[in-house]
Design a protein around this nucleic acid. Sequence first.
DNA 1: CGTTCAGTTGACTAAGGTCAATTCCCGTGG
DNA 2: CCACGGGAATTGACCTTAGTCAACTGAACG
Lengths: 194, 194
Amino acid sequence: MHPLHQLIHSFSPINEKSWQQLFEHCEELTIAKGKNFIREGEKEKYIGFIMEGTMRQYYSRDNGEEITTYFYFENNLVSSYISCINNTPSQITIEALEKTKLLIFNYSVINELYNKEKVWERFGRKIAEYLAAGLEERMVSLLMDKPEDRYKKLLNSTNKQKILARIPQHYIANYLGITPISLSRIRNRLSKNK
Amino acid sequence: MHPLHQLIHSFSPINEKSWQQLFEHCEELTIAKGKNFIREGEKEKYIGFIMEGTMRQYYSRDNGEEITTYFYFENNLVSSYISCINNTPSQITIEALEKTKLLIFNYSVINELYNKEKVWERFGRKIAEYLAAGLEERMVSLLMDKPEDRYKKLLNSTNKQKILARIPQHYIANYLGITPISLSRIRNRLSKNK
DNA sequence: CGTTCAGTTGACTAAGGTCAATTCCCGTGG
DNA sequence: CCACGGGAATTGACCTTAGTCAACTGAACG
């Protein structure tokens, strides 16, 4: 089973025939380190599935400062999901942190599948629910935990290895909502206290 | 058209017959000021639709401190959505800030409708997408904006009237991620600077 | 080698948190 | 109708912690 088919299947059982309807519209795309998959302001809506590589998603402030909000690894779906569902220009940019191989398809394809078959509609629901649950957890952590606690949680997360090994520290910092300098101090503090 | 039917219809067109399948499982419930609709740890999953009243949703810390994460008004759906979709005990409590009239139904009802009809599955998708978009916006604001900015955004929001008029300030404060004392100072600062 | 950029460290600033006292508001009961 | 009680909001003094700015180190890469 194709890894993307497998991922989709884990949300909503999709048989081979239905899967082909998506797969026939997929293309491969390789993005070099430092290049973008999706750019802020863009209207073309693509969904990507990471075969190999690492990406980061960020918002830009007026002054050009970048605020990282997410990291993606192998077997993750990447896209400016909000801009797809609201049909608005993307507010985010998604950049490859290493050379990244993607399987991509246009959002309009998935949208048509939503119309065609109930199992695809269910897939859309499950994905959105999964996303909402993740966002809620993240939001609550930002409200309830101190930066230091959030860093500790990250150290205990299942993605720990991947994140710490493959993501530069200053991106992790603003993913946690703090400055790189501050994260450096937190790490210093933690290493001394035990 | 029943106000709940109307709300559902705005997400996914649902005809009278389909609507009745939900409506026949609805009950009315009135909750007195200060009483809870949903309690932390609870497993029974109900969805409510506010006919009249105001509610607030909060998480509890170990030390008993409450962190308010959302407010609900007339025509809003209220529930521990995450616990419904993950089928886990609720982490949140939803409390009536005034005497509140609800129309309620069990999540299992909606879940069966998801199985029965595609239009209901679509409704589920749209609701989840709507929720995800709202959560993302909120999360980004917590990452990018200073508390003062978040308060200013609240002052410009469409819900401004409702929130400021009907919600005690100390709940607004921790909705913004700050202490009531801090919010008081921010208000003071803003009133002096113009 | 030197250039570059990530990460650390130090000195200082700013802003929110904490604790405590005070005032304000509002509903209740005498 | 007024006095009282209690919670909400404000204010002041002080503390803690993250932000800012700048200097320095060190590793990566041409």
